[in-house]
Amino acid sequence: MATETGHASAEHPEHQEHPHFLQHHFETPAQQYDASKLGMWVFIATEILMFGGLFVAYLIYHAQEPELFKLAHHALDKKLGALNTVVLLFSSLTAALAVRSAQLGKRNRTSAFLVVTLLCAAAFLVVKYFEYSHKIHAGLLPGRCFGHPGFANCIGDAGLATQPLAVSVQEHGMLLQLPTRANMFFALYFMMTGLHGVHVLVGMSLLTWVLIKNIKGHFSPEYFTHVDLSALYWHLVDLVWIYLFPLLYLVS
């Protein structure tokens, strides 16, 4: 995390104006807050650049084979994708409300909003779990595994050698015949949603840590940097999904 609260061990009586949360190398709380906030924004910039590589790969391969992407995307469950979009958007709202109540010093409400945000994040992952296991079952894991249900052929060279020419998927009651080249769509799908999923997990750890700190009473209207920054990070996680959903689930 960007900031670590001071241990407040040496509270000199003659320096009461020096708040306990101010680290020694900052002059004022405002400077410390600005630094932390800018640090998080810069970090978010690095995250966007990292996802940017995958978005560029998507753009290129989609431009090369638009019809194939359109065909392959029918294998994804739009309803579950839409459900997850709503869940994440709602969690962003509760994260923002958590920051607001932290600013107002309402500790219990902050905790409540953080818990709701965490529950949404967990719900998102549960939905994702069902989606993933369905795909894995259908043999849509990319690369060596493609066309082979489960993980059996993922390691070693057997997978590629015995890859079927087409993969059949049952989705929405219709039977999809996907050529092996459709592997690219699922390679991108699993890389993008997988990396996003890792970010959901990191976000959840951050929010849990902040929740614990909040329950212990570390925050006040003067000092709520952690709540603010972890919510900022959570909005990034949400934002990435907002782009992933139409790109992967709503190809046209």
Binding site: I60, P142, G143, T180, R181, N183, A187
Partner: peptide
């Protein structure tokens, strides 16, 4: 990922480049 799972993003056999 390419090495571990043969992902295909850089593999022309699987439509990659």
């Amino acid at each position: 990922m390419e090495r571990v799972f043969g992902l295909g993003i850089f593999n022309p056999k699987l439509g990659g480049d």
